[in-house]
């Protein structure tokens, strides 16, 4: 037979998967600095899934081949999943990967969309992040003060640490939202000053 393989261009797949609605705003010094931090953390999160695959496979092999099963290994799985998706939410905001319905919106002028985006970040996302943090901090504290641990024998102790991920993740999300708001301000008002190079 002729060619056994059809070549596929990953860049083209990438382009197709990126949603058409992504809004692009100018970069600024301030937002660049914040986004650099966000990307460093995100870079770590991206590997957590591969580690999770390996942990599950190890658990399966241990259980079915060797007849051993550790509760803490099972609990590690959902701990990793929780860290991954909670921090991923801020990372996805930074990369504008959250789903939008843009049938109507795509007909709006870019400036109008930028105003909507800014208002949404200030009036909806900011209060939400603030309130969740306001209640997530005592939530974590209470767990620490009670000395809470897993209620399964052989489960993990220090449950406050995984509960505290809510605080970390919402700070992270708040930073991502702030960086985005800064970039929109740069577009709308020229303050802070946009960086020339893109």
């Amino acid at each position: 037979m002729g060619k056994s393989d059809i070549d596929i261009d990953p860049a083209q797949v990438e382009q197709a998967s990126a949603r058409g609605h992504a809004l692009d705003f100018p970069r600024t010094r301030l937002s660049d600095a914040i986004e650099a931090v966000i990307d460093v953390v995100g870079g770590v999160i991206n590997w957590i899934w591969i580690v999770l695959v390996l942990v599950i496979v190890a658990n399966v092999v241990g259980r079915y081949a060797l007849g051993v099963n550790y509760i803490w290994v099972e609990e590690m799985q959902w701990h990793m999943y929780a860290v991954g998706f909670m921090l991923g939410i801020g990372y996805a905001l930074r990369h504008d990967a959250h789903v939008r319905v843009d049938v109507v919106a795509m007909n709006l002028r870019p400036r109008t969309r930028a105003v909507i985006e800014l208002l949404g970040l200030l009036l909806l996302v900011a209060p939400m992040v603030y309130l969740i943090l306001l209640y997530a901090i005592p939530f974590t504290e209470a767990s620490f003060n009670r000395g809470e641990r897993s209620s399964a024998p052989g489960g993990l102790a220090n449950r406050w640490a995984i509960k505290g991920v809510i605080v970390v993740a919402f700070v992270y999300l708040g930073l991502a939202a702030f960086a985005r708001a800064v970039r929109i301000c740069a577009l709308l008002f020229g303050v802070p000053r946009p960086r020339a190079s893109r």
């Binding site: 959250h98 319905v101 109507v104 709006l108 909507i116 949404g120 909806l124």
Partner: peptide, 19 residues
């Protein structure tokens, strides 16, 4: 109404709930 402005669905849901 809010999601038709093109604002991300996740933040529309969370924001409307808080509001």
């Amino acid at each position: 109404a809010l999601i038709f402005t093109g604002f991300p669905v996740a933040w529309a849901l969370a924001g409307i709930s808080v509001a």
